[in-house]
Amino acid sequence: MTNTPWEASSGLYKKLALGSIVVSGTGIILALIGANTHNLALMYTALGIIGIGLVSHMIGMVVRTRDARAWRVSQGLIRPKAPKRVKRTPDDTA
Rank of each mutant, 00 (worst) to 15 (best):
L77P: 01
S74H: 05
T26N: 07
A94H: 15
I50N: 04
S74W: 01
I52E: 05
T37N: 13
R64N: 14
P90H: 13
M43R: 05
A82Y: 09
Q75P: 03
T65A: 15
R85K: 14
L54Q: 12
P80K: 04
P5H: 10
S10Y: 00
R66E: 13
W71G: 00
V55H: 07
T89Y: 11
H57F: 11
N36G: 14
P90M: 08
T93C: 12
T2F: 10
L12R: 09
V22S: 11
A70G: 06
I21G: 03
M43N: 03
T4Y: 06
I59S: 02
V55W: 05
L47R: 11
P5G: 08
A94D: 13
R69S: 01
T37Q: 13
T65P: 02
N39S: 11
V55N: 01
M61K: 12
V62E: 07
T89I: 12
Y13C: 04
L42M: 15
G27A: 07
Q75N: 09
A68R: 14
A46T: 08
W6E: 15
G76S: 00
K84Y: 08
L47I: 15
Y13P: 02
T45H: 03
K84T: 05
I49M: 00
T4S: 13
N3Q: 08
V23Q: 03
I78P: 06
H57D: 04
V63Q: 01
M43Q: 11
P90N: 08
L42D: 03
H57G: 11
R72L: 15
V73W: 05
T2I: 08
V23R: 03
S9Q: 13
L47E: 02
G34F: 04
S9W: 05
V55M: 10
S56A: 10
L12H: 02
V62T: 10
H38E: 15
V22M: 10
M1W: 12
R79N: 12
